[in-house]
Every structure is written in structure tokens, then in C-alpha cells.
Design a protein around this nucleic acid. Sequence first.
DNA 1: CGTGTAGTTGATGCTCCTCAATTTTTGTGG
DNA 2: CCACAAAAATTGAGGAGCATCAACTACACG
Lengths: 246, 246
Amino acid sequence: MINISRSILTAAKLQTVELRYARGEIVYEHGAPAQLVYAVDEGALHRFRLLSENQRSIRQFLFPGDGFGYEIGRRHRDTVQALKPTKVLAAARGALLAAATSDPGLCNLLFTAAAQAVVVAEDQPVTRRVGAARIAQFLLEMDARIAMRGEINLPMHRRHIADHVGLTLETVCRVLTAFQLEELIKFRDRTQRRLVIRDKKRLQLLVSDALDFDYLSVLKRKAVNAPTAVSAATAHRADVAAPSFT
Amino acid sequence: MINISRSILTAAKLQTVELRYARGEIVYEHGAPAQLVYAVDEGALHRFRLLSENQRSIRQFLFPGDGFGYEIGRRHRDTVQALKPTKVLAAARGALLAAATSDPGLCNLLFTAAAQAVVVAEDQPVTRRVGAARIAQFLLEMDARIAMRGEINLPMHRRHIADHVGLTLETVCRVLTAFQLEELIKFRDRTQRRLVIRDKKRLQLLVSDALDFDYLSVLKRKAVNAPTAVSAATAHRADVAAPSFT
DNA sequence: CGTGTAGTTGATGCTCCTCAATTTTTGTGG
DNA sequence: CCACAAAAATTGAGGAGCATCAACTACACG
């Protein structure tokens, strides 16, 4: 998706409209006529496409500063939906193109933005083997985009993450749990949406495939090494002999 | 990769050089300074990137009419290598950009080409589950690009196909064999490089995940159902009783 | 308190990878 | 043109990683 950012919209001196969306509201759907281009001001959205029924590919998470909605043809090729209360700016696509034909500098900006989009789209590794590496990459991206004082407050569900990295929701869970057990990350609340990255180096090694991380054996090791902890978790049973540590 | 095609180069009235490459020769390598932009005139090439050692991702196969080599930054981000004797046209990247700043129409052409490249790059499904579907899609693309009178003469090895679709060479082999057993395709010579598509409809259904094709069970069924056919294949032994059909 | 949603955990099986052997094809020099 | 070596393609057996199905926990909301 070409990133027609807010700065480009202002450079084109276009009239913009401010739009607000609640969590779950759809900005546009696949197949809808592509009249407007958008730039995120506040909040978070996701852009996705339905492959088959019950299979969705989330192409991009959108945060403040990101532009979206520009299409070559007349219709949108994907759907954009808000993840939480969100404010976006919208401008008419036709007006943008008209301004570009009369303004060489603006045309150049558009070309640069499009060329940049190609780089971004191509740098998405087509198929990465290891699931853990894809999730590590996702976490590092979120850290770069939305971390506040080292803490990431994820606006999306496990299901969204799964559809983004191309794994199942269950596998995402397992890998995140394994990351926590290995002290790569740490969750900060009970809903598991706020987290901090504790070992960025090892996550980066994971992404570059320089380190292999077998999340299944990490989970197994935990189940074997910490039977007392398991007992403590089920300590509502009074007949458990092992001493529990809160 | 932005497709700066031959028609754009001529529209820009740029001076071009004609270059020739033998099979296996490299046009440019990852990290080399990006001075030129290219358009294929004859032959075939592939553009790839090394992920880790012994892992390569072939981003694109290039055929006559395709443009390649344009970069945002100063250096090439991937490597391009000829698959067979190939002729390409090259023009100076700087001259192209200079022409674009003075010519609004050309700038528009460049923007359109870049935007089109984004669509192409994004339409590559990030992760498709079924390996058979990815190979079916590859075959249909090759059919559209390089088929002559319904016959496809693949310029690349199984290894290239594997690196392109993100599977191993062995899996590619097995799927192709299963496709042939199910009469979806037919090889035309002993090198297994020339083939015809016999059932385009079913291949398309495979791509859209509307049909599931279990290549392993196809291969197993063959091993069980056709012991006589296997004997016929080894019919140089005179003691085989089954009648052989040439 | 029930109901619904998000998240976690476990058991099992399938798809594809890995390693290995063999056959077929291609390229090269006599 | 043929023989030989190297490369490409095929086939098989076994195993790893992730999906699937299912149960369960925790929390939010009326």
C-alpha cells in the first residue's frame, strides 16, 4: 500500500476531512469504489484481505502517520477496519492526482512514496520457515512503531497477530509463552496485551535465523522442570503436599 | 521491483546500451551500485536474494518486456542472473530521473509503473498453506508468460522453482509428478522441462483453494495401483509377463 | 451470576523438510 | 560420435513443526 502520508497531503494543499471510527468500524471494504485517500492521525487500524472463507491475511497494521487507501484501479482491493477508537484524515484521490499533474515536485513525491512502498512490500519475506522468527519480527516492528517508554501496548488480538504472520492463534500463544519463559519478553498485565522486550538482541538474532528457538521444547522443559509450580497453580486442592511459593 | 519497461525507456528518449549475457552470468549483485536500469529483450533471468546461507528467495523470473534494476537507494538490494543466453537494454538511472523531472508525462508513467509494482508485490500471497497450490500458480504464470502454442519450455531448474515458491526441490518434484499422474499437466521430453497444461480449470481451482489436492496420496495410490505399469517401465527385463505398450 | 470473548494448554495428525540413494540428463574431451 | 564425469531429477524413509480439535481459565459486561 502506497503511503500517502499526512505531509504529502499538506504539501498538495488538498482539502481534507476528519473522520472518526470506533473499535471494529470499517473504513472501507474490498470492492468499494476508491474515492478517497487516508492518513492516520490517532489510533490503530488493520488492512486485510479474505483469502478463502475462514482465512484472512492481515497485510498491514496502521498507526499514526501511515497513509492508506490509494489504489490504481477504481475499487479497493482490501478492507480497512479500526482496532480501537481512531481518527483519520481523508482527501479526494482525484484532487490529489490533478494536483500531481500540474506540480512536478508533488509528482516526484508520489513516485518516491510508491517506490518506497515497493521496497516495503518486497522486503516482506515470502515464506520464512520458523514461526518463532516471524513473531519475533512482529514484536520488534511493534516495538519500533508503538512502544511508549519501552512498553508495547498491543491494540490487536492474538487472532490478528496470527492472521498477520500466517500462523494459527494457538501457535502464536505458545510462542509468546515460550518467549516469556526464556525471558525474551515480559507481560505487564493479565490480558497479556501490554509487554516489554527484555532481550532485543536475541529477538533480532531469531529474525535473522542466526539463532534457533524451539518453542515446543521450551514449553516441554517447563512442564518437566517445574512440577511444583504446576502444583502451586492448582493449589486450591488442599491435598497437594509440595510447598507452594506465591 | 518497478517495471521500467522498454516502452518507458523509449518514451524518455534515453540513450540505451545493448548487453548480452551467457547462461549463469550475473547482471548485478546485491550491494553493487545501482547506476543502470534494464529491460529484457531476449532470454530469461531471475532476481533473487540470499536470506541465510543455503537459503535463497527468488523474487521474480524476468522475461522479454520486463524491466528491472531500478532502486531507491544507491545500491542494488538483490542479484540478477541469466538463466539462458539473454539480451538486455540498459539506460542510465540518473538520466531517467532527470528526464522525469522535466517531463510531467514521464513522471506520471513512472508513478504508474511504481504503483503497479506495489500491486504485484502485494498480491503475492504472503503464505499459502498448500504447496500444491503454489506450484499450480507458478505453472499458470509461466503459461501466461512464456507458453508457445500451448507448450511451456521452462528455462529454470527444479531448484529455481523451489526457491521461488518457498518449498524444497524434492517437494516440487513430487507435486509435479502427482500433477502428471492426475493428468493436470504432461511432460513433453525426458528433461522434464517442456510441458503442456492439460487441465487449466483444475489448476485454477487449486490456486483459489477451492480444490484440495493431496499429492502424497496421489503418489501412494500410484505405487499401489500400477504395479504392471511399473513393470512395463522396467521392461528391458525379458521375463516380464505383462504386455507392454509403447 | 450467567454469558460471551480472549487467552492458554494439551493430544493427535498432517504436510513438508531432511537425509540418503538411485536414475536420468547434460556437458566435455577423446 | 561415444565415453565418462558432473549436474539435475526422482524416489524413499523418517522426523520436525505447525494445524486442528477440544477442553479449560480468566476477565468483562449486562
